[in-house]
Computed example of a mutant assay.
Amino acid sequence: MTDSSSFTIVVGVDGSPDSRLALEWAADEARLRNGRLQLITAWSKPPLAWYPEVLETAAGGIAVAPAPEEDAGKLNAEALKFAADKGAAATGHVVHNHSPAAAIVNAAREADLIVVGARGYGGFEGLHLGAVSHQVVNHAHCPVLIFRPKAA
């Protein structure tokens, strides 16, 4: 827990629907508590990958795929704008780490709360809890809220 009077919420941001809902909840909570958000977006470079990746399009043209770091930076910037629009004080961090869970847990060492979505983009459909949220719960140094959307 933080020693300062500001309630700090670390939010894992990956652009998935669950992550967006978690960010929305965390922004509202930070605003209500006069707290602040730390938005964490982790990225890694796949082994033997070359970036920017040059791809040939179906029409025979050339397209350049953005590097993972650029994608992560854009996601984090969008999350920062969203938090600001909701009236929540926020800082954004783009972290190079092969484990998004480790990036979130490390960023939250002095935090009061971690908020993550239940599921991201990876893994198996239909699981109630994703690998990142599972690891965060097992290694966090503060309370963790896993945000799940309401059932349809």
Rank of each mutant, 00 (worst) to 15 (best):
S6Q: 11
T8A: 07
I9H: 02
I9M: 07
V11Q: 09
G12A: 11
G12H: 03
V13Y: 02
V13S: 06
V13F: 00
G15T: 09
P17E: 12
D18W: 02
R20P: 05
A22P: 11
L23A: 10
E24H: 04
W25K: 07
A27G: 12
D28K: 06
D28P: 03
E29Y: 01
E29C: 05
A30N: 02
A30L: 10
R31T: 13
L32N: 05
L32Q: 14
R33W: 04
N34I: 04
G35Q: 10
R36E: 15
L37W: 03
Q38K: 15
Q38L: 15
L39P: 06
L39R: 09
I40E: 01
I40D: 00
T41W: 00
W43F: 15
W43N: 03
S44W: 02
K45A: 13
P46A: 03
L48D: 14
A49K: 02
W50I: 14
W50H: 15
Y51C: 06
P52F: 09
V54L: 13
T57N: 12
T57F: 14
A59G: 13
A59R: 11
G61D: 15
A63Y: 13
A63S: 15
V64P: 08
P66K: 11
P68T: 11
P68D: 12
E70W: 04
E70V: 13
D71W: 04
D71T: 14
D71Y: 06
A72H: 05
A72L: 08
G73Y: 00
G73L: 03
G73H: 01
K74G: 10
N76V: 08
A77G: 04
E78V: 08
L80I: 05
K81S: 13
F82I: 07
D85P: 04
D85E: 15
K86M: 14
G87Q: 04
G87Y: 03
A89P: 00
A90I: 08
T91N: 09
G92C: 07
G92I: 03
H93P: 03
H96F: 05
H96T: 04
H96R: 12
N97G: 06
N97I: 07
H98K: 13
H98A: 14
S99F: 01
A101T: 10
A102L: 11
A102V: 12
A107Q: 08
A108K: 03
E110A: 14
A111Y: 00
V115H: 12
V115F: 10
V115L: 09
V116G: 12
A118L: 07
E125Q: 13
G126C: 08
H128R: 05
H128P: 01
G130S: 08
A131D: 07
V132Y: 01
S133N: 10
S133C: 10
S133W: 02
Q135S: 13
Q135W: 00
V137F: 04
N138W: 01
N138E: 11
A140R: 05
A140E: 03
C142K: 00
I146F: 02
I146N: 00
K150A: 15
